[in-house]
Amino acid sequence: MRGGIRLRLRRPRGRREQMAAALVAVAVVTMLAKAVGAAWDAAVRGWPVVAVLAAAGLSGLLWQQVRAVRRRRAQAKLLAMLQIPLARIDALSDAEFEFALRDLLIRDGWSARQVGQKGDQAADVIGQHAQWGRIVLQAKHTTVGGKVDSKVMYQVKGTAGPVHGADVAVVVTNGGFTRDARAWGDQHQVHWVDRERLRQWAEDGVPLHDLLRLPVRRPRRTGVRRAA
């Protein structure tokens, strides 16, 4: 290296240098031993604090889980007793009507979610049940005297199975259906729930699968059968 000083280590020469190097090594080892001992003593003295903090954190997590379980149970109890008067349903918005139908399905034991939005392809609520399969609801919130026509039934029939994989297709309204819509739905397995059926479902608490007399379905096979 130009312009600098290069330090080179050489082995101790003679007894004096060797003794001096040994003393330095002993001093270094002693200092390291003291440092390790001090760290260990600090850890031993501080473990109660660490233990308390860990226990407090674990207790907090457990308490949050307990609260979540209690909250889910409370919501399930409320949904189990859910009854919605038609007058209240009439006052709902379109989106609120969809969520109300979702809650009614959950009350009846379905695993349901609201999916209605722009481009939903004639599905506002989708539910799943171990006995009755997959259900798709198309919600039509209207005036009391409003009627759903056959076009809606065509749309639901065309997308419920092919697009959403539904076993059961249902159109629900707080109004009514035209005669052609009811007849077409009965002929092509598109169930309809008019104002009177909605009253039985929402107000009286009759489960939808009983109201529509849905058949129990066999579980779908998920595996592929191997050839012998």
Rank of each mutant, 00 (worst) to 15 (best):
A21G: 08
L23V: 08
A25F: 05
V26I: 10
V28Q: 14
T30E: 03
T30D: 11
T30Q: 12
M31Q: 13
L32C: 13
A33D: 13
A33Y: 05
K34Y: 06
K34W: 12
A35V: 14
G37F: 07
A38Q: 14
A38M: 09
A38C: 07
A39S: 12
A39V: 05
W40G: 03
D41H: 13
D41K: 15
A42C: 10
A43Y: 06
A43D: 13
R45W: 04
G46V: 07
P48T: 02
P48A: 01
V50F: 11
A51Y: 07
A51F: 06
L53M: 10
A54F: 02
A54C: 04
A54L: 09
L58F: 01
G60P: 00
L61E: 07
L61Y: 00
L62T: 03
W63F: 12
Q65H: 04
V66E: 13
R67P: 00
A68G: 06
V69Q: 04
V69G: 02
R70N: 05
R72K: 13
R73W: 00
A74E: 13
A74K: 14
K77N: 08
L78A: 14
L79C: 05
A80C: 08
M81N: 13
M81Q: 09
L82P: 06
L82N: 05
L82E: 07
Q83C: 03
Q83A: 09
P85H: 05
P85F: 07
P85L: 10
L86F: 10
L86V: 04
A87K: 10
L92K: 08
S93P: 15
S93L: 02
D94C: 04
A95F: 11
A95G: 04
A95W: 08
E96V: 05
F97E: 09
F97K: 07
F97M: 12
E98S: 13
E98W: 11
F99I: 03
F99N: 10
A100N: 03
L101K: 00
L101Q: 06
R102W: 02
D103K: 05
L104N: 01
L105Y: 09
L105G: 07
I106Y: 03
I106T: 15
I106W: 12
R107L: 07
R107D: 10
D108V: 13
G109I: 07
W110S: 03
W110R: 15
R113D: 03
G116W: 12
G116D: 06
Q117W: 07
K118A: 08
G119T: 11
D124C: 06
D124Y: 03
I126E: 12
G127N: 04
H129R: 09
H129L: 01
Q131V: 11
W132M: 02
W132I: 03
W132Y: 15
G133Y: 08
G133V: 14
R134V: 11
R134H: 12
I135L: 11
I135Y: 00
V136C: 13
L137F: 15
L137S: 04
Q138P: 01
Q138G: 09
Q138W: 09
A139R: 11
A139S: 15
A139H: 05
K140N: 00
K140H: 12
H141V: 05
T142R: 11
V144G: 00
V144C: 02
G145K: 07
G146E: 15
K147V: 13
V148Q: 01
V148H: 01
V148R: 00
D149G: 07
S150V: 10
S150P: 01
V152T: 15
V152S: 01
M153H: 02
Q155A: 11
K157P: 00
V163H: 08
V163W: 05
V163K: 11
